[in-house]
Structure formats: C-alpha cells, structure tokens
Simulated scan of single mutants.
Amino acid sequence: MRERRRSPDRTGDDPVSPDTPPGGPEVPPGEDPEAKVRNLVLRMLTHSPRTRAQLERSLYRREYEEELVTRVLDRIEEAGLIDDAAFAKGWVSSRHHSRHLSRRALSQELRTRGIEEETVREAVAEVSDEDETEAARALARKRLAGSRGKDDETRIRRALGALARKGYPAGLSYRIVREELEVEGEDTDLAPDTDLL
C-alpha cells in the first residue's frame, strides 16, 4: 500500500473551487463515489499534469477515504494517465531550459511534488554537466548584461546571487562569472574565496 503523504501543498496543484466542501459536494442518491472521485481526478489532470502525490494530497484534503483514493488512482495510473517518470522528465526539460535551473534545484522541485528519489535521479540525469554549465552561463550573461554601468562588485554580487538562487554551486558560479566578465573585456580579480554570495 502506498504511503499517505500529508506534506504541505504549496504547488498550486488544486484547480477545483475552494468553495467545494470537504469530501466534495454531496453525492446525489445513486451516484457512485468512485465515479465522483475519478471525474474529479480527470478534471485536475485536464487542467495540468500532476504527480500521483499531488493528486493524493488534493483528495485527502477533501477528506476522501484512503482506500477509495488508492483504488481510483491505481486504476487511472494503470490506464497511463498518471506517470510520475514522464512528469519528472518533462518537468526537468522544461524548467532547465526555460528557467535555467540547476540539477540541484530541479531535484528539490520534483521532491516537493512527491516524486520518488530514484525517479528524481533518473530525470535529473538527463541534464549533463555541459547542459548545466551552459544554462548557468546563459543566466550569468543575462544578469551581467542587465547591470552594465554599475561597479564590478555590484555586478559580480548580483550575478552570483542569481546563480545561487537557481541552485548552482559556488565554484561553478565564480568560474562562469569571471569568464563572462573576461569576455566583456572587464578586468576583475574575482577569486574563488571571494565573500560575495
């Protein structure tokens, strides 16, 4: 039996109206509770892809019985409509390219969405060292371009801060910022032990 997850849900994964009372609307006489839960899950999946854990949290919040939730989600998963591995791969591809997130940040986002650790590792492994370096470089270049005209210390601090927020390690961040400043023709003495993060 799957473990019931009760972690806080801060991911905006619940498009159903907040006016819906716990347990959902009253089940009309003769309506199958399983059909009601299934329809609710299908509506949520139509709104946007979700992990099994996100769907579980949403249904538990409405106080549906664990056995009912498990039964419905098992059937929907068997039909291929819930696929955490596919979700994780799509998430990594999208967020890495659009937001320039590091592997560490991507891993954390997937964990908060209830993806199992092995699936997280497999999805994040799709991002190579080169991919991560190029994404960090693109982010540093963008940040440095936006701070032209400011003093070097401010530019470096802002670029390093942006990279840190995206989860990049300090050593990689220092190297890339230094290289990008050199490309610009800037003269900087940034050293790996600079205390600017």
Rank of each mutant, 00 (worst) to 15 (best):
D74N: 15
E26S: 12
A88M: 01
P21V: 12
S58Y: 01
E186N: 01
A164T: 03
S93R: 12
P29C: 03
R95L: 14
H47D: 15
D84P: 07
A145E: 15
W91F: 15
T11K: 01
D195H: 12
V92T: 01
P21I: 09
D19N: 10
T188F: 02
K150L: 14
Q54E: 15
R175N: 03
T70L: 13
L139G: 00
R157P: 09
R111Q: 09
R6D: 15
I115L: 09
E134H: 09
T188R: 07
P169Q: 04
E77K: 05
L196M: 13
E126A: 12
R104C: 07
D14I: 01
R165M: 07
F87D: 00
R99D: 13
L59P: 05
V41P: 08
A138W: 02
S94P: 00
R38W: 13
Y60G: 01
L68Y: 08
D131M: 14
G161T: 12
G167K: 00
K150W: 12
V27D: 09
E184Y: 04
A88D: 04
S98W: 06
V69T: 06
A164L: 05
I76F: 06
Y174A: 03
R95C: 10
L110M: 06
D32H: 11
L59R: 01
P49V: 11
R61G: 13
I156R: 02
A162C: 04
A164Y: 09
R148D: 07
P29G: 08
G149C: 11
R165W: 06
D74S: 14
V41I: 13
G146R: 11
V37K: 05
K36Y: 15
D187V: 02
R50V: 05
R5V: 15
L40V: 09
L197G: 00
E130G: 10
P33E: 10
E180C: 01
E180V: 08
R113W: 08
L139Y: 10
P25H: 11
S7P: 02
S107I: 00
A162V: 11
R104Q: 14
D189G: 02
T51H: 04
R137N: 12
Q54Y: 01
R157N: 03
E186R: 12
T51E: 13
G185H: 12
P8M: 00
Y64H: 14
R113G: 11
T70K: 12
K36W: 11
